[in-house]
Structures are given as structure tokens and as C-alpha cells.
Design a protein around this nucleic acid. Structure first.
Lengths: 138, 138
DNA sequence: CAGGATCCCGCTAGATACTG
DNA sequence: CAGTATCTAGCGGGATCCTG
């Protein structure tokens, strides 16, 4: 509604944009991995580099990732659970205990993320160098 | 400054958060790949799946990605150039021509992104199924 | 053609308080 | 302990205008 000139252009562009990216489902995934909390949660659940897929409690995750708020942590866990990447196990103990664990699907994605992290560890210093060089020259 | 109780907790948390993530440079990379335009520009420059590292013009990129605004495109290209992931080549023709191309570094990251995209194409349907299942049950 | 500068809106992420 | 609900600020990002 209210298709102004700009919106029309964006509409027209959207068609080509979709043709460019919507053909493959990668756009949906991009929205997923583009969330930094998703990656961090995956890292935390995957053992942050170690193969240690032991289930983590909510507070444990919050403590490990730390920089995350309850809202973001819960929200991220919810979406990951919704997509079948993590499992949520509620143990009806006295105060209630909840365990989160990676599914096979989540684990496979986590392994990919680890590769990305490896790339970062190997090349980030060069990126830093380029960045500083570029900054000082400017 | 103005370190309230919450800020103090966040501060304290920040230390552990850094210990958890700052040990590896992955956090800096996360900020990089967490930008969807970065990925899309990398795709466009990398040929979107094809190995076709031919330099692209600014308007060409804008047309290919389409959904992006000039501001975001320019901003993304600037940061990528700053990090040494893409090169910016200005040819002083009559109206001025600018070519963007992936550096070796950018290409390697692009290849990684392609792997992620492959994962997406293979598993996104299952994710979709899980998602719908989860939605309809709720 | 390629991009700088500016205004401005929306949505997200964070803080706070409350509950089972 | 493991959340939920609400409120708000900040900024990402789009639109628009202008320049070399």
C-alpha cells in the first residue's frame, strides 16, 4: 500500500533480488546466522571449540555467554528450538531444571560455525592490520 | 561512567564474556558476518556460487543485490575495503568507473560462506518442516 | 556514474520488574 | 532457577537531495 515511486522501485528490485537470492534458501539461513547470539549459543552448546555436546542449563548458558540478556537468550533458544537445532528438556525438579542441547542438525551447523571461527582466528590479525593501515593512512 | 548495579553486573559479566570469546578473534568476525549485506556483497562479488571473481561496478552491484540502498552498499563496501576483503579500483574515465573485486582474503571468506550456503540448501527444508510442525502444535 | 550528507523512522536489543 | 511482560533508547537502515 502507498506504493510511492521509491517503493515501486524497491518492488521491482525485490523481484530481481528474489531471483538472485530466493532461488536458494540461503537467505533464510542468513537471517539465522546473522544473529550473533545464535552463533554464540551454538558455540556455548557445542563446547566453544571442544566436542563436548553435554546439555547446558539456562543459567549456565547465561553465565557462559554473559553478554546476553535473558530476553535475547530466551528468544534465541526459542527460535533455535523452533528450527529443530536445539532441544529443550524440562526436568520437573523442585525449582525446575531445564537443559538445552544441540540436535544433530544443530551440531552440523555448529561444526560449520567452528570452521568460520577457524578462519577468523587465522585471518583476523591480517584484517586488523589492514584496518589499522587503512585508518592511519586516512 | 554511571556504573549502576546492572551496569556493574554487565561489567563483571563482560570480563568473563571476554574470557570466553575474546580469547579467539571470532567475536570480531561475528560482527562482520553478522551483517547480511556483507554476505550478499561477498556473494555478488564471488559470483553467487560460481567461481567468477570478475570485478563488478558499483551500479552493477546495486542492481544485482537490488534490495540494498546506496548507503548500505557504500557503507558495506567501505568496511570490506577497510578490512582488506575487497579492492576498490577507480578508473578515471569520463564519468568515472569504479571496480570492486574480492581479495584473496575476501575470496577465502566467500568460499566459507558458500559452504554455509550449501548447508542451508541441504537442511533448510528440514528446518522449515520442524518450524511448521512446531508452529502448528503450538 | 559513484558516492557524500542528512533526516528520520522502525525495530531490536537491553534494562527492569514480576511469576511459577 | 527459568523464564515472561513491558517500556524505552539507540541505531541500523531507508529515503531524499546534492556533488565531483
Amino acid at each position: 500500500m502507498a506504493t510511492t515511486t521509491a517503493a515501486a522501485r524497491r518492488d521491482e528490485a525485490g523481484a530481481r533480488y528474489n531471483a538472485f537470492l530466493a532461488g536458494c534458501p540461503s537467505r533464510a539461513l542468513l537471517d539465522r546466522i546473522s544473529d550473533k547470539w545464535v552463533v554464540l549459543v551454538l558455540c556455548a552448546l557445542g563446547g566453544d571449540g571442544e566436542e563436548d555436546p553435554e546439555p547446558r542449563r539456562y543459567s549456565e548458558l547465561a553465565r557462559t555467554i554473559a553478554g546476553v540478556s535473558q530476553k535475547m537468550l530466551t528468544q534465541t533458544l526459542r527460535s533455535l528450538e523452533r528450527d529443530g537445532l536445539v532441544t529443550r528438556t524440562v526436568t520437573p525438579t523442585v525449582p525446575v531444571t531445564v537443559h538445552y542441547a544441540l540436535t544433530d542438525l544443530g551440531l552440523s551447523l555448529h561444526l560449520l560455525m567452528q570452521q568460520v571461527r577457524s578462519w577468523a582466528q587465522e585471518n583476523m590479525d591480517e584484517v586488523q592490520a589492514r584496518r589499522e593501515e587503512h585508518d592511519t593512512r586516512a
